[in-house]
């Protein structure tokens, strides 16, 4: 569905020294630097795949997303999406893709969302019967019954986001570009949006490409992770494989029936990450896991015990710091 080879995007940016003198000089003579926002990226994405595009701010992930959707023209390299070159803005391709961003909205502000649906129907040339069917499918799934007739400006942020999603899906796109889709939403609304996106992917075999700083979005939506850092791919694979590669240790979360001193925890295999009188969090190597669990159950008043992988936030922080360190060597 998406084929990317040696994709490069360089920007020319104006640079000047701080201070008034330098600012004045820059009015007459400017110095430019070349920023390698995306620097030789290659990957393949299949139909129906759910991809999480991760990276620190300024890593090049949004630039890549914009080149995939045709908004930015690559400096060099190959991109095809559904067999089309995005920068040509072929209408057939534009009918197959859509972009939803949590920070920008396309709904008509003064009119009810149903009017934006109608406008998109006309722009995407959706036959009336298919339009009815799509709206009838989306409205109950997202709980929009009372919202689509209310002017957009009177809706809450979460309600607007749900309507944004519906408006973006009127033409049943095959590729969804999602840029921070749950930013600013409350927990319930976030989980509604994530569940809906997963469901859309299942029902229509749509390819989903997500960029988000919210790791709950990533774990809930993406099955494969592409990590991009300073314009290059530093990881491409399954979410579990990333965690396994970076932090293979497991975490054992213990809850006690009565307070337990730190000296008793120190006797267990592994490292104590957090401790409170009635709680503790241990980091244990995979090989020591059985022994650690057995020992905890045997020697401590354990009321509850959970084994989990390292949180994605920690894994990524670790990955970014390692790649930064490798580059500085």
């Amino acid at each position: 569905m998406i084929h990317v080879r040696d994709l490069v995007k360089h920007y020319r940016v104006h640079r000047r020294a701080p201070g008034f003198g330098a600012a004045l000089r820059s009015v007459f003579s400017r110095k430019f630097d070349t920023v390698r926002a995306v620097d030789g990226v290659s990957f393949e994405i299949g139909e129906g795949d759910r991809i999480g595009f991760l990276g620190p701010n300024g890593a090049g992930k949004t630039t890549t997303l914009k080149m995939l959707s045709g908004l930015l023209h690559p400096t060099s390299g190959e991109v095809t999406v559904a067999g089309h070159v995005p920068k040509d803005r072929d209408h057939e391709l534009l009918r197959a893709i859509m972009l939803v961003t949590g920070q920008k909205q396309q709904l008509l502000w003064d009119l009810p969302p149903s009017e934006t649906f109608e406008l998109n129907r006309a722009i995407y040339d959706v036959p009336r019967a298919q339009f009815r069917q799509t709206v009838d499918e989306l409205v109950p799934l997202l709980g929009l019954e009372k919202l689509i007739g209310t002017p957009t400006r009177q809706l809450s942020m979460g309600e607007r986001m749900k309507c944004e999603l519906a408006a973006a899906l009127i033409h049943r796109p095959k590729v969804l570009f999602l840029d921070e889709p749950t930013i600013g939403l409350d927990v319930t609304m976030q989980s509604t949006v994530r569940e809906f996106i997963r469901g859309y992917n299942r029902r229509h075999r749509a390819t989903v490409i997500l960029t988000s700083h919210d790791m709950d979005d990533v774990t809930a939506i993406a099955e494969r992770i592409i990590v991009i850092d300073r314009g290059k791919i530093s990881f491409d694979g399954a979410l579990d494989a990333l965690i396994e590669k970076m932090q293979p240790e497991k975490r054992v979360r213990l809850t006690f029936a009565e307070p337990v001193g730190e000296e008793r925890l120190a006797a267990l295999p592994g490292r104590v990450l957090e401790t409170e009188p009635r709680r503790a969090l241990l980091q244990v190597a995979q090989a020591d896991l059985r022994r650690a669990v057995a020992s905890a159950l045997e020697t401590l008043p354990v009321a509850d015990l959970e084994v989990e992988g390292a949180p994605l936030e920690d894994v990524l922080a670790d990955l970014f710091s390692r790649t930064a360190a490798e580059r500085s060597e």
Binding site: H91, L94, M98, Q106
Partner: peptide
């Protein structure tokens, strides 16, 4: 200014017309 021109450029119709 707001970056919402992206939405218009991604529509399958002439952007100048839209």
């Amino acid at each position: 200014r707001n970056g919402t021109l992206d939405f218009i450029l991604l529509k399958p119709a002439d952007a100048q017309f839209l």
